[in-house]
Design a protein around this nucleic acid. Structure first.
Lengths: 222, 222
DNA sequence: TAGATTGTTAATCGATTAACAATC
DNA sequence: TAGATTGTTAATCGATTAACAATC
């Protein structure tokens, strides 16, 4: 109780670049954890992540009191505090719209459960795969998106459909009450203000890789 | 000739955030182009991208003289100048290491050719798929990575293998002379200083989507 | 000409880095 | 105790935004 006022930054709005790094620290901490590490210093974490100790400490300060002076940070505690700060301790039903190869890859290989997401529906237009199984899910008809999303309280979705149906499927997701869309198509989506879109055009990653490798003097981890 | 000294910023080192946006402008410009647009203003581009006109003009200034005062920017010219600035007019042989669902999705759906990349090899460990076709490619044994990469002058690669072989396959790619690796595994790779790594853990995209949708007051396009 | 819109400089804002006292 | 390392403040650096003269 007396401690609660000792966390000056814990409540402040977190900067976007910091949020991006926190998400990646989570991955690094898991690797450390599976290697049996129990404690990590800002210097070690920085070496693994590829930035500097000062930035790591600044980032972790946004979580409130996390480490022990002179000792470093407890790996599992830190992992939990980051998960909490990023809102990953709440649970959100998630859907995949488009069960082509990319949609399948996401459904089968992304560890949703671990990060507060429950993969609760998968949709496609192709009659020959509607009704078949993908992971633990039965693929449903794209036209059912609004009803199924409402029924299952789905609030997040990955959009992995072909270009030409991107906006159409987006409208269905929005109608279903989805509040965040991870857009893998090369279309800029039109959505209401209260719906968040994160654009992830894979070709952009390759473009930046090529740029970092051959054109950028100090290859950046951006 | 007399014009060449009129491009004050054209030669300057481009900032990383700018490079990231330039890659995305490319996608927006293609959408505009396929809609028949020939000219675009910084205001329009900003509206489509989701930033402001000032930033767009600042970004485009790094390309040298691109627009016409009072008129806007020619869509195709701009597209070409960005491609040139990002080094996409050179050609780089590219490989995919790991032909699981994600590797297959990349091989079949990413428009490499359009952006200076020639998909020139695909590798996997599974005997039952080695020798089969993926797009126009015959899948080769992972153990052949160093030789095949040398033979085909492969300089870029996507790493889409399981966690436990990530570092091992990376070492093979580096031995093959690869200079840029797009890392989709949840392992921090150890590479020599002259090799660029771009980390793209898909789960991080979902984490940030969830954060942007529910925790971040002004959902950002980061 | 008048309206529009660039190119560019200057001002602001925010993020990164450095430094160090506190302390385990 | 001495060494290590955090938490935090201050300094630097860089990126974004605003503003406007130039000009098509």
């Amino acid at each position: 109780m007396a401690d609660s006022c000792k966390q000056p930054d814990a409540g402040r709005r977190i900067a976007w670049p910091t949020a991006m790094r926190l998400a990646e620290y989570l991955i690094v901490l898991e690797e450390l954890s599976s290697d049996g590490a129990q404690v990590v210093s800002s210097r070690q974490l920085a070496a693994l992540y590829g930035n500097n100790a000062s930035q790591v400490r600044q980032d972790l300060a946004s979580l409130g009191r996390t480490g022990r002076v002179g000792q470093g940070y407890a790996v599992t505690d830190l992992h939990n505090m980051i998960r909490h700060k990023l809102g990953l301790t709440r649970r959100h039903a998630t859907a995949i719209a488009g069960c082509g190869r990319l949609g399948q890859a996401l459904a089968l290989h992304v560890p949703f459960t671990k990060y507060g997401m429950d993969l609760s529906a998968a949709f496609d237009v192709a009659p020959n795969i509607i009704g078949t199984r993908l992971g633990g899910l039965v693929i449903a008809d794209t036209r059912l998106i609004p009803t199924v999303c409402r029924e299952r309280s789905i609030s997040l979705a990955a959009l992995t459909v072909p270009k030409n149906s991107a906006q159409e499927v987006t409208d269905l997701l929005v109608a279903g009450g989805v509040k965040g869309i991870l857009n893998y198509t090369r279309v800029r989506l039109k959505v209401p203000r209260d719906v968040a879109v994160q654009n992830r055009q894979i070709i952009c990653s390759f473009i930046l890789l090529s740029y970092a490798a051959f054109m950028h003097p100090t290859p950046d981890e951006g």
